[in-house]
Design a protein around this nucleic acid. Structure first.
Lengths: 224, 224, 224, 224
DNA sequence: GATGAATGAGAATTCATTCAT
DNA sequence: GATGAATGAATTCTCATTCAT
């Protein structure tokens, strides 16, 4: 896997300097940030990930974010209309990265080669999840009533599932709807990552990757 | 099934009116509840499920719950010490039911019989999930920092996974840690139920059950 | 003049207990206030008049109102959605009273009788203005961009002018549009009341009434 | 007309660039302004009129003004100590022009000549009002507690009334205090201009002028 | 047993003003 | 001379919890 950009820090492109005329309520975000502004924006985005991660969306206070970013309330609202707006920015960011990940998946088969491709793809997902997991999970945060954001979450996982279904055609044999099967697998991957990351399950990262690879192979390419 | 603790339990049995001294902070709960009180308590519990379902724990307001239960704030605090207390009551309820579910699982194998047992167990889970899914999900609500409640969530799914691992000994072959593998499967089951229930995936319930059964069999009992 | 209700205090009817299903955002206002609630509501309305009077709409803080009503922030929002909502309630109240005033005007002519009727009508207006003047003025508060509220102000003064034009038919002689002339007079009455009330002009109330009567007679019934 | 104070004046004359030491708090204003500075100052003053007009003093944000003037916050404070300072500058400007207007009033009598003088004076007022009306009205902005600014408003209208009372001695007959009567008329003139300008009353400008002239003549010079 | 009303601490948001470049 | 960025005090608003009847 070859991430298109450095992952550890939020890439500026998708969030900050897109050409959009400045969505309503994100005052300073439409235009032309100088170096200082860029840095502040970055700090806020990073702080957002961090705080949403540790407290979840609802429990996160703007005050926490602002403190984590070592800036002031006023400044926060210079960049984002409100907490949700910041969250949306992060979501957009993750969505981009997940799309990229989906695009990176190569055709996989039951052979050693396919197994290797699959595992490294899962590793990429895990890496992404380490940074953005909380955001991804929060998407889904307990809302059956689908909000715009909530929907994105499913969409995005759906995208991954789509890529998977497409690249593993053989799963089609048997009575499983490949799309749904793929989604089940993606859901499993996401959850297991979560359990491992949060320490609720004790497993090393490579153990987890091996396991997931094995499970997916068994499901997608049953021996007969 | 035998509830492990004396607590008001929701469905399907009637609310328990034991004489327990009343845990601290749940004022009216220790008392003997007459018919009227019974009904009010039930209404509040049901309202809790409903509201936590649609808004999640943090976003749920006591006001919402009270409205849904067609009662007053004052009354709410007659039955529960606070919002979290209500949630805990529901959680305990679910935990009980899930324990029962775990206990119900029979030994399963790769044959037709095991497949049938597995499927009907999954059906039981789905049924339970239809009512309590939101509570289950809210456990997990976007927090890496593990809160007491959050932990319960994992515990309970862990219990299911434990039962599964135990009753499907054959999975032990190959390099998979059976406990982790079982957890991955349980996680998958939970998530897929969620996606289907929330309408984010379009699949009929029996389709879903077939698929999950198939996946689990493939994972637990790979042909060779 | 015979005011339909006691003026010095806000009449409960138009504001509080109308049959409207509870306009959005005025939580507790839709329904059935008990004695205590009634009193609190009344205190808030009175406080509103007082504070809007002394500081104007924009400069008035909810905090001021709440202090004047000797209650808490929380309580304020139990009765009104926000500051504007309270203001609107007062406006509706005044609008009612002004309509009543307009309806009370009797036919007036150039004779002693008409002069007396006119003067006592002006006295009624002054009395009303003493309580509600600030609200009336704030309506107009510097907004050329007509808001819903702003419009009401003109409407209401227009109503008075309409009544006046109608009851003083003779003004029609000469080139004056009676409606516009009447409005000019009403505007004058309002402003002079304001100047006198605010102490910017030193005149006794009866002097002012005499003067206004005289001016109106001269304008409406010029000797030939 | 002769400005009473050295202050940047808006229209119609060019901005004054006197060397006055600069009143406290208006940083850049004491300095000699070059062409660029001149233009910026003008833009800010114009923007002030515009924004105060549409939103009133309190609701006007420095941000609005700065945007309307197509400049930055920093620049604003280069020219004015604060929002009130800008307002005061505009007020001073209007005060000057109104003083001039007061001075321009010729002796008027009940004859055709006086009527013509009066009407053209009213026309001059209307013209002034078209530009500065909002400022004039904002003076009065809903406060009974007289602020420094609020007082100026009355002063200035009082000045007009004074001039009027002085130049129309005949009003003295009858029981009317000429000063108060004159103020009532001025108040009427101001308000009617407002209603017409804001479109709340539909009348052409010349109709309004005719009407006001007629009313004033009737009041000031009753036939007997 | 129930409820309407009140409370106040806590969180979000705004905006005049200052600062560094 | 100008400006983008930052600031924080002042406000509004929410909501869990308590109280009096």
């Amino acid at each position: 896997m070859a991430p298109r950009r450095a992952r550890p820090t939020v890439a500026p492109e998708p969030v900050a300097t897109d050409g959009t005329p400045g969505r309503p309520g994100a005052p300073a975000q439409g235009r032309e940030l100088r170096a200082r502004g860029q840095r502040t924006l970055r700090r806020l985005l990073d702080a957002g990930v961090e705080v949403f991660a540790s407290r979840g969306f609802h429990a996160a206070r703007v005050d926490d974010i602002v403190k984590a970013a070592a800036t002031s309330h006023g400044t926060f609202y210079l960049y984002f209309a409100n907490k949700e707006d910041l969250f949306a920015a992060l979501v957009a960011d993750v969505a981009d990265q997940i799309s990229a990940l989906a695009a990176e998946l190569e055709p996989i088969g039951p052979d050693e080669e396919g197994r290797r491709a699959l595992r490294s793809w899962l590793a990429a997902f895990t890496e992404l999840y380490e940074r953005y997991g909380p955001i991804i999970r929060t998407w889904t945060e307990a809302e059956v009533e689908p909000s715009a954001l909530g929907r994105m979450g499913a969409d995005v996982l759906g995208q991954l599932a789509g890529a998977l279904a497409e690249h593993a055609g053989q799963a089609r044999r048997n009575r499983m709807d490949p799309q749904v099967a793929a989604l089940a697998l993606v859901a499993m991957v996401e959850r297991l990552n979560y359990f491992v990351l949060s320490g609720q399950v004790h497993a090393r990262r490579d153990e987890m990757l091996d396991l997931l690879t094995e499970v997916m192979v068994r499901v997608l390419f049953p021996p007969r």
